[in-house]
Amino acid sequence: MIELNGLSKVFQDRKKGQVVAADGVSFTVKAGEIFGLLGVNGAGKTTTLRMLSTVIKPSSGSATVCGYDIVKQAADVRASIGFLSTSTALYMRATPIEVLRYFGSLYGMPSAKLDERVDYVVDRLKIGDFADRQCDKLSTGQKQRVSIGRTILHDPPVLFFDEPTAGLDVVTSQTVLEFIEETRVAGKAVVFSTHIMTEAERLCDRVSIIHNGKICAENSVHGLIEQTGAKSFEQAFLSSIGYTREEAML
């Protein structure tokens, strides 16, 4: 479903010069699998997901999503994916129904299919009670349910979640995590980016640890604990990125 081969991204910064945000990132994700992309802030998770979603182009390397090349067949890739993060917001002056219909139309869904999917999403995510209220009047949890609805409306086979619970309360986070678990059952290929270890332990079939733009380790959660000889997944993560107490003090 998803295949990355040495994907790199270099940004030009006026002050810092060349900044390597992703450096030869490679991994594969199969259908029905939740793949965790773990790293600290600025590790390169968002850059990798942005390249996969074709928002930015890689500097080198290649990747395919559902068999489509992310550079040459960008529109096909975008039609095959759903993307959710806490930074992807809703149109505050539109109602949830309008948001869903707008994005469904942008995905080129035929009218009858769109009606059917909107009904499904509204029912499935319990949006009905506030479906005609403007988004700026919704609670954070309600907004996140609408965002999820927007992500799955066109029933994409591939889903990207970029720190989808950052800044959310426990209950709202739970809704998001439960939804991600369900996507595995539905046979979706999921890339889940996070720096919250408990979420990765709960959801991910396999994880890659990315640090300074490079993949430092890839395994299942338990495999990584065994591989590093750590007592917990958190320690395994810290060990993988070469964390030492002295380094942290600096």
């Binding site: 975008r78 039609a79 995905y107």
Partner: peptide, 14 residues
Amino acid sequence: ERGTMETLLITPVS
């Protein structure tokens, strides 16, 4: 600023 641009750019529309 609001974060809706990324959502829009991820759609297959040119």
